[in-house]
């Protein structure tokens, strides 16, 4: 198992942990953070898998660089929407009850 595979495996675990967070966590701020953990896992898988047999691959690295910037932008948009929701309704979760 090469170093790249370790990164990819860690990325898969991170992605799943983020996924569990998105599904189970109610408060939107923490859910946005979980979504970011998910994205970081996907980036790790992309870069790690591409270099599992040695040399680095510039193509996924460029894709991940693009992805990181888009992740920043989407996080900012999500935060703005969450704050708008909080201002309009006073709530920080999407549904009135957690269980629906």
């Amino acid at each position: 198992m090469s170093g790249g595979m370790i990164f990819a495996g860690a990325g898969a675990v991170l992605f799943t942990m983020g996924l569990v967070g998105v599904v189970l966590i109610g408060p939107l701020l923490r859910r946005i953070l979980a979504f970011n953990v998910m994205g970081s896992g996907a980036f790790l898988v992309l870069v790690g898998l591409a270099q599992r047999d040695g040399g680095a691959d510039p193509v996924p690295q460029a894709m991940v660089l693009t992805g990181i910037v888009v992740a920043v932008a989407s996080t900012a948009l999500a935060l703005a929407l969450a704050r708008r929701l909080h201002r309009l309704t006073g709530r920080t979760t999407l549904s009135a009850t957690d269980d629906d």
């Binding site: 198992m1 595979m5 990819a8 495996g9 898969a12 675990v13 992605f15 799943t16 942990m17 996924l19 569990v20 898988v45 898998l49 591409a50 599992r52 047999d53 040399g55 680095a56 691959d57 510039p58 193509v59």
Partner: peptide, 23 residues
């Protein structure tokens, strides 16, 4: 989720070498 992560890791370990060599 745990079984999904396990399946994902095993699938990646089994992955054949890529058909095109991008580097």
């Amino acid at each position: 989720a745990a079984s999904f992560a396990g399946a994902l890791v095993f699938a990646m370990l089994d992955l054949p070498a890529p058909g095109v060599h991008l580097p």
